[in-house]
Design a protein around this nucleic acid. Structure first.
Lengths: 228, 228
DNA sequence: TCAACCTCCGTATCGTTGTTACATCGGACT
DNA sequence: AGTCCGATGTAACAACGATACGGAGGTTGA
């Protein structure tokens, strides 16, 4: 810009690239456009990022940071399954709000290609399923459960991005189906250590029936029943 | 070329493009390479396909034909749910065997972009879920069920392509979870009168755990959950 | 102090890409 | 025979990613 530019060049390039990507999702943006927006020539960009892929990865990493900071603020209900639910919704919401970033992060499908930054959210997800497993809530291994959740969560989000409009019913439907599948809801025998899980799942899946506080209380009470 | 060329030029271009795409998934192939492989100059390609996108769409359409012919040969069990299962597996198998085609068909994620040829398989899918609905097998609308199946099926397939190796456990797990979700099997049905009985009995048997009023409230809430 | 050095950045250029204007050839129809 | 149209080639364009090269400015070390 003609104004003073307090931010350093690298950051300016990164933000310019992020803007262009957000404006036109996909990776079909021009490095020259990025340089123009940042008020710099191309070798400068190459100096900082090596090549286009380097710039994209830096942008993606930045996107994941945004995603994680947006996610970490809304994820700690105590109940791991409920955390999975919140994480699912946060994932979908981020994808719909930032389709440009999201398609770069999860929409690029090449065999063997998995951005470095993807590992962090996956780690968090596995942490949640591990906790759920330790609580005896899963009927499949925690890694299997995490893969199950991840694949479907991405699938739904990409689908929603493609069709442009959000579809809470689809997202919630798939989400509950997935959670039911990994928790074995409906197949649990009384007294097998998973007391009341179907009730909890059902209540949490439909917060409108009981209301948020009642649902939370219900989960808490059933937990106390199970402890004894 | 020097050899005889029985196939017509358009087909040769199509096959050359398909080969290049299959060799290096994605759409980052050169039109000149296609022309060289087909023994033709570029204006010929433009004469038949207009532009690169046109060529890609033609290749995609060809891919869908392959997919459908591979699918239709293994899909008629009479039972719509079982057909969905077979269709799911055929979908995954095709994606893993033809990642190049598949990523072009379903891996391209741009808001509002949906290849023409995609509508055919989606139509078939909706036909199956409609039949299932008419048979009274679904607990959600057939369109919702179809969207549910499609999003997860694509999600799993893309995931398997990315991680290179097949994972029948993941595919089957998600598949059964999805089918359970749309058919209602494995989940406690609304109004089946059994939701939370073990919880209620335990609470009623031990009024000291929650206290009288809480227990009463719990029973009431679970009743409301079951009514819906 | 001064020369070596490193970071940052511009000039100019290269090879490749998608795309198009224009010309050519050959068969089909009138 | 003449005209038209589909199919193909020649040549060129602009935009792209990438790179070789050089220079300005500050920092460092003897």
């Amino acid at each position: 810009m003609t104004e003073v530019e307090g931010t350093d060049t690298r950051t300016r390039l990164l933000e310019a690239a992020a803007d262009l990507i957000a404006a036109a999702p996909g990776e079909d943006f021009s490095l020259r456009a990025v340089c123009d927006a940042a008020g710099v020539k191309m070798p400068t960009l190459y100096h900082f990022f090596g090549n286009k892929q380097g710039l994209i990865e830096a942008v993606v990493e930045r996107g994941f940071d945004m995603y994680l900071s947006a996610k970490s603020s809304t994820e700690s209900s105590g109940d791991p399954i409920q955390d999975l639910r919140l994480g699912w919704d946060a994932h979908v919401a981020f994808g719909l709000e930032n389709p440009g970033f999201y398609t770069l992060m999860y929409g690029k499908v090449r065999p063997g290609y998995s951005p470095e930054a993807q590992s962090k959210p996956s780690e968090i997800l596995r942490g949640l399923t591990l906790k759920a497993e330790q609580d005896g809530r899963l009927v499949v291994g925690y890694e299997q459960a995490a893969a199950h959740v991840l694949a479907t969560n991405i699938g739904v989000t990409l689908r929603l991005i493609i069709q442009g409009k959000n579809d809470p019913e689809l997202s919630a439907g798939v989400r509950e189906g997935v959670l039911a599948a990994i928790t074995g809801t409906g197949q649990s025998e009384p007294g097998d250590g998973r007391l009341g899980h179907s009730v909890i799942e059902r209540a949490a899946a439909n917060p409108g029936i009981l209301g948020e506080t009642e649902t939370q209380l219900l989960i808490q009470w059933i937990g106390r029943l199970g402890e004894v």
